[in-house]
């Protein structure tokens, strides 16, 4: 059973279509990257999953059940545009948000104390939010999102506003929550963190799903039989030797060391390439060139845009 089945979701606003027939599955206990450029429809989709708005068409299954108002108690949501009541005290406010998620006051207090100790923010309890720095407030927001131990966590740009140290702490906590059984949907533009922690991704562009699957599998799909090659020697002789069997994709030189990306021709292997160039240059390094999530993102979005 999946944590979430998104089935044929469409949503229109007065003047534009935000989502067109979007479907994908979020496996249980995964960290699922929901990617896409600004205005692609990610936030619309997240709001539908949170039951903030309803879809015009399609359905969402939450652990196999039709999404139901009670389910919001099992979802933790950290919006991209997030804030807290400025005049309220940190502790009071955290208790309020926990109770809104269905925890009793006693239970909420217990869990909050645990989390505050964990993140070493115990002495903030009686501070007003307006006295906190942005990073401090972000930590409180993160705690209030996860304290009710939701089955599904939806984090929209969770790392923005954190310094590298705190971003690392949050990253560690997200992975720990996954290991303890939570499913995490992560919406972000930070492709580095996607590569680092996501197991699955879905890419939305112009209201449509353009890509989805396991991260390794998606990258493999974009692997076009390319290799990165570093060598020393005559670059012109090297280029001539490639002839028509190999394609030079990219090249740059640093003094007498040259670095280039070679795409193998039809039916050719790495051995063929090495045999061809070995007489001409001194080979220093060879490795497969798999595109990064960043490249994939840009490529997928650009292809889409050009087709449209």
């Amino acid at each position: 059973m999946n944590a979430l089945d998104v089935k044929g979701i469409s949503k229109s606003y007065a003047d534009h279509k935000a989502l067109k027939n979007v479907s994908f599955e979020v496996p249980q206990q995964s960290i699922f990257g929901l990617l896409g450029p600004n205005g692609a429809g990610k936030t619309s989709l997240i709001r539908i999953i949170n039951r903030i708005t309803g879809p015009d068409d399609g359905e969402i299954l939450f652990f196999g059940e039709n999404l139901h108002p009670e389910h919001v108690n099992h979802i933790g949501y950290l919006p991209e545009e997030r804030g807290l009541y400025k005049k309220m005290k940190v502790g009071e406010q955290s208790l309020y948000l926990a109770q809104l998620k269905g925890l009793s006051k006693q239970e909420a207090r217990k869990r909050l104390q645990h989390w505050f100790e964990r993140l070493e923010i115990g002495d903030w309890w009686n501070k007003k939010v307006e006295e906190l720095s942005k990073g401090m407030a972000q930590k409180i927001q993160f705690v209030t999102t996860v304290m009710h131990e939701p089955k599904l966590l939806i984090l929209d740009e969770p790392f923005s506003g954190f310094d590298p140290i705190n971003a690392a702490i949050v990253r560690k906590e997200i992975m720990r929550l996954r290991d303890e059984g939570s499913t995490v949907i992560l919406s972000t533009h930070n492709m580095g963190s996607v590569e680092e922690i996501c197991d699955h991704i879905a890419l939305i562009n112009r209201s449509e799903l353009v890509l989805n699957g396991e991260v390794d599998e998606v990258r493999e799909r974009f692997n076009k039989n390319e290799y990165l090659l570093k060598f020393k020697g005559n670059a012109v002789a090297f280029a001539n030797s490639l002839w028509t069997q190999f394609e030079l994709i990219d090249k740059h030189s640093d003094e007498d060391i040259h670095e280039c990306i070679i795409k193998l021709g039809e039916g050719k292997t790495l051995n063929d390439l090495l045999v061809t160039i070995a007489p001409e240059v001194e080979i220093r390094e060879v490795r497969p060139h798999i595109p990064s999530m960043n490249d994939i993102f840009i490529k997928a979005v650009q292809t889409e845009t050009m087709e449209a």
Binding site: I52, I75, Y77, P79, R82, G83, L84
Partner: peptide, 12 residues
Amino acid sequence: SRIVEVIISSVR
């Protein structure tokens, strides 16, 4: 203060 989206993910 942008807290509203958090709140309405819990209450209608």
